[in-house]
């Protein structure tokens, strides 16, 4: 143990882990965006989201990282997989990409990135004067049920409405087939 510690500096290890996590994130994102096979996209998304969960660990909140894995990877991605059956059968040939469209999309994406990067680098970020260092899940839960109670209720309501809405929308289409 001691030898390993002396061999590999802890912060080096942490840095290597960080690079891996970032690489996972972007690799997943690229896979999620570029291939035309929808299954690959979803798998890429899962990878990317896992990377983001790692980033959350580096940002000091293992709890949120777990939540990320649980909700995003565990729930949302799985529900998207269900939608795959609506997509074009895999054995048929893919339609060709239209290059002008991809070009324009890339242009706009780059423009947005330039804008964001510009804004990020030109803003002088000032930390708050006094900063508490209480990261515990206990406090989180406490806040959720006291100060952010209303927001909590609101998000619950939003989820409820979303569920009902989803049922209504798909049910409506069933009653009126084209």
């Amino acid at each position: 143990m001691n030898s390993v510690q002396s061999l590999i500096q802890p912060h080096l290890l942490a840095q290597a882990g960080f690079v891996v996590v970032v690489a996972l994130t972007f690799a997943g994102a690229l896979i999620a965006v570029f291939p035309r096979n929808i299954l690959y996209n979803i798998l890429g998304l899962i990878v990317s989201l896992t990377g983001v969960a790692g980033l959350f660990v580096y940002l000091g909140s293992p709890f949120i990282a777990l939540m990320q894995l649980l909700i995003y990877v565990g729930a949302i991605c799985i529900s998207i997989i269900f939608a795959i059956m609506l997509s074009r059968p895999l054995h048929l040939s893919m339609p060709k990409r239209r290059l002008p469209k991809v070009g324009i999309a890339a242009g706009v994406g780059v423009a947005v990135f330039v804008m964001l990067a510009g804004i990020i680098s030109r803003t002088s970020w000032q930390p708050a004067a006094s900063r508490s260092s209480d990261w515990s899940v206990t406090t989180l839960g406490h806040y959720l049920l006291t100060r952010y109670d209303l927001v909590f209720e609101a998000i619950s309501l939003v989820l409820l409405v979303a569920i009902l809405g989803a049922i209504v929308i798909s049910g409506y289409a069933r009653r009126r087939p084209s």
Partner: peptide, 27 residues
């Protein structure tokens, strides 16, 4: 941030919104 709880709560809510959004979008 002065209070490290707030951002976490935001992130949790974003996940909630994402779930709702995914449900609606899929339907």
């Amino acid at each position: 941030a002065p209070d490290p709880i707030v951002g976490q709560i935001y992130t949790l809510f974003i996940m909630g919104i994402a779930a709702a959004e995914a449900a609606i979008a899929l339907s």
